[in-house]
Simulated assay, not measured.
Amino acid sequence: MVQRTLRLIPLVAVLATSTSVHADSVIKQLDNQLSHIENTVNGTQRSLRRTQNKYDNTQRTMTELKDGTYAEKSVGRAVKKKKRRAVNGLIHRSNNAIRKATNIY
Rank of each mutant, 00 (worst) to 15 (best):
T40N: 01
T40V: 07
T40Y: 00
V41Y: 04
V41S: 04
V41L: 14
N42F: 08
T44N: 04
T44D: 01
T44C: 00
T44A: 07
T44H: 00
Q45L: 13
R46K: 12
R46G: 06
S47Q: 10
L48C: 02
R50M: 07
Q52R: 07
Q52C: 02
Q52Y: 03
Y55R: 12
Y55S: 10
Y55V: 14
D56P: 02
T58E: 08
Q59Y: 10
Q59D: 09
R60W: 10
R60G: 05
T61C: 12
T61N: 15
T61S: 15
M62I: 11
T63G: 10
T63P: 01
T63D: 14
T63F: 10
E64K: 14
E64P: 03
L65W: 09
L65P: 06
T69N: 05
Y70M: 11
Y70L: 13
A71L: 14
K73A: 12
K73R: 11
S74K: 08
V75T: 07
A78L: 13
A78V: 07
V79I: 11
V79R: 06
K81G: 08
K81H: 10
K82P: 00
R84G: 01
R84I: 04
R85Q: 10
R85G: 08
R85P: 01
A86V: 06
A86L: 09
V87G: 03
G89K: 05
G89A: 03
I91A: 00
